[in-house]
Design a protein around this nucleic acid. Structure first.
Length: 605
RNA sequence: CGGGGCGUGGCGCAGUCCGGCUAGCGCAUCUGUUUUGGGAGCAGAGGGUCGUAGGUUCGAAUCCUAUCGCCCCGACCA
């Protein structure tokens, strides 16, 4: 039996003694035949399973990745992948390679050590701040948090003509980000593997095409992985760029919030809904001041003065690039800061401090309003308030409000924008059905970058007219560990992980019950084991001297798709048992039907 | 960075408030023996400077000070 292992594990070689050799011993031809190793004995494979829940893990995927011996933590947000977990990572990488290769991607291996100068040129040393790791004992080097700059640098070196494009360049590599708060196991780490692709084009139409190719590839990738996902329109944030979409997995462990319904999904940062604007009312008397000594909030006004909530206009003040803005929102609508950043064209915004508020308006929080606001304050309002009248708002005098405000008549609104945060239950702009607001994990993000990086680094090309233009770029990322964690978040039960055959570290778990005691079982297992290897079916053989219960529980925890259970009782009838992990279905079949059964099972998957 | 929780054999925890025998328990490990289809029984054994440093004290896991690390909530998040 042991000999069989040597036989499979080593490179098999045969050598022919050629006719020549018989005549002349100098010429010997060796012919090597490599047999891939498809099987592994658990006694020789490092799988440290944990019976109890590790204290540091709070979410299911993290707990199970630790318990099933896939990963171990090393520091906050830093993980080692153990052999079993790394097998899953490699399977994910294979799928990523296949699908990105299929759209013409070319894989690079890029350095993690980057000269800081390049990052200074795109102004991202400042933009990234503490997130960028700096090397302490070697000035001028940083750890790459992503690779737009490096790709653009190489493009600048060698892409000279419009004829050199389009290009899709990608990498699957470790990136480093000094996250202020790593959490949720591998979901947010300081070091993580990312598939990052970059498209280089000579036209905006070319970018659209590259973007669409990646969109389609991403759909294929996540479908192949068996992950349930949705796509949302997203804010491109500090990345800059024209358009971006995120591939999301609904999960309570997620950090993003999305509004979704049947045909609509958007990150809450940009989501809109169908809410009727505040209507105009016929009676439109003059403004009237009234005392509201005990009303600091909209709820207070509604309660104390029986004013309908939608007739209240809430004012909040922000400093936008150090200039004061008054933002007018309907009733208890919540201002969406990302939307404000988008219309302001800057991420440099902050809620105003109380003393600044007093100085600027003469009133305190709760008594601010758009009427007679000092001219140096820019006033913007939410779209729902456009031309509304009969409104109540602060009088810019502590303890007083104004009623009968006609925003068109009495206030100078500089601009109306969509600024509100969508709420659960509001109607979808596409279908008219209620929106759900859910937490989600961002698995992938595709961006139309445009020329931000090529302009900053002067990566230009000559077009057909001989004119110089910046290369038009896109950037497309997928978190490799996140695929693994998200899959587990969606596929587990109280016993453990439930792998599909695509991502499973092995396809089959061969369990020899008391194989260390029963020569009969041991022998049958060896036969099956060797057969599975010959048939190229990835198999983990539990040949440990453990009791049946231990093997069953570990098998369920590891969650390989099919368990082949060899026990003495069934063996007497020349039978073995098969258990399908996901459904818990059990089949008793003849020993010699196994391969046929497995092939049929995996083909149908 | 703000708020909270936690650091005690490999893992999970008790003990800490109120200082005092040799620092306990479960799991795991090792030896022997019995058992053998859902985390076995019995008998024995090994393994911990109680995160670290300083201080108080006759005496510190326990009290004080500082510091490091991990987890959670918030801020942040290309």
């Amino acid at each position: 039996m042991f000999f069989m292992d040597i036989f499979h594990s080593s490179i098999l070689f045969f050598y022919h003694i050629t006719e020549k050799r018989k005549k002349n011993r100098k010429f010997v031809i060796f012919k090597f035949i490599y047999k891939k190793y498809f099987t592994m004995r658990q006694t020789q494979f490092f799988i440290p399973t944990l019976k109890e829940l590790p204290n540091e893990a709070k979410i299911p995927s993290h707990q199970l990745m630790l318990r099933a011996g896939l990963v171990r933590g090393l520091a906050a947000g830093v993980f080692s992948f153990l052999p079993l977990g790394y097998r899953v990572i490699k399977k994910i990488m294979t799928i990523l390679r296949e699908e990105i290769d299929a759209i013409g991607g070319q894989e690079f291996l890029l350095p993690a050590l980057n000269p800081i100068e390049i990052w200074e040129q795109t102004n991202r040393v400042e933009a990234m701040g503490d997130v960028l790791f700096h090397i302490k004992n070697r000035d001028g080097l940083v750890l790459a948090p992503t690779h737009e700059e490096i790709i653009t640098y190489h493009a600048k070196q060698h892409i000279q003509s419009y004829r050199d494009m389009p290009q899709i360049w990608y990498q699957i590599q470790t990136k480093f980000r000094n996250e202020p708060r790593p959490k949720s196991g591998v979901l947010r780490g300081r070091q993580f593997i990312m598939k990052d692709a970059y498209s280089l084009d000579n036209s905006w139409e070319g970018l659209d095409l590259a973007y669409q190719k990646h969109y389609d590839a991403y759909v294929k990738i996540f479908n192949r992985c068996g992950i349930k996902f949705f796509v949302v329109g997203a804010s491109s944030g500090a990345m800059g760029g024209k358009q971006s979409q995120e591939f999301m997995v609904e999960s309570n462990s997620g950090e993003d919030v999305c509004a979704i319904s049947e045909n609509y999904a958007a990150n809450l940062e940009v989501a809109t809904s169908n809410v009727p604007p505040v209507s105009r009312i016929d009676k439109n008397p003059e403004i009237e001041e009234f005392a509201t000594p005990n009303a600091k909030t909209i709820d207070d006004l509604v309660e104390q003065f029986a004013i309908p909530e939608e007739r209240c206009a809430k004012s909040v003040l922000y400093m936008v690039d150090d200039k004061p803005w008054l933002i007018l929102m309907r009733g208890n609508d919540e201002l969406n800061e990302t939307k404000l950043q988008a219309v302001a064209g800057t991420t440099n915004i902050r809620y105003i401090a109380p003393e600044e508020l007093k100085e600027l308006t003469g009133a305190e929080h709760g008594s601010i309003g758009p009427v007679n606001i000092p001219k140096n304050i820019k006033v913007v309002a939410d779209l729902l308030l456009k031309n509304a009248n009969g409104m109540v708002s602060g009088a810019n005098k502590d303890g007083f409000h104004l009623k009968n405000i006609d925003l068109a008549r009495d206030a100078k609104i500089d601009n109306y924008f969509d600024l509100r945060t969508v709420k659960e239950g509001e109607l979808c702009i596409e279908t008219g059905k209620p929106l759900r607001v859910v937490k989600a994990i961002e698995l992938g993000h595709i961006f139309k970058l445009g020329t931000r990086y090529s302009q900053a680094l002067e990566a230009n090309f000559l077009d057909a007219d001989g004119k110089t233009n910046p290369i038009i770029m896109g950037s497309y990322g997928i978190g490799v560990e996140r695929i693994m964690a998200c899959y587990i978040e969606q596929n587990f039960d109280d016993k453990g992980i439930i792998w599909n055959n695509t991502l499973a570290p092995f396809s089959v778990h061969l369990l020899g019950l008391n194989s260390h005691k029963s020569e009969e079982v041991a022998q049958a297992c060896e036969e099956i084991y060797n057969k599975l290897n010959t048939e190229n079916i990835e198999t983990l053989f539990d040949d440990r001297a453990e009791t049946a219960g231990v093997k069953f529980n570990d098998a369920d925890l590891l969650g390989l798709p099919v368990q082949v259970i060899v026990g003495q009782k069934n063996l007497k009838e020349n039978n073995i048992e098969i258990k399908v992990r996901r459904t818990d279905e059990r089949f008793i079949i003849k020993l010699d039907e196994l391969i046929t059964w497995l092939k049929k099972f995996f083909d149908n998957k």
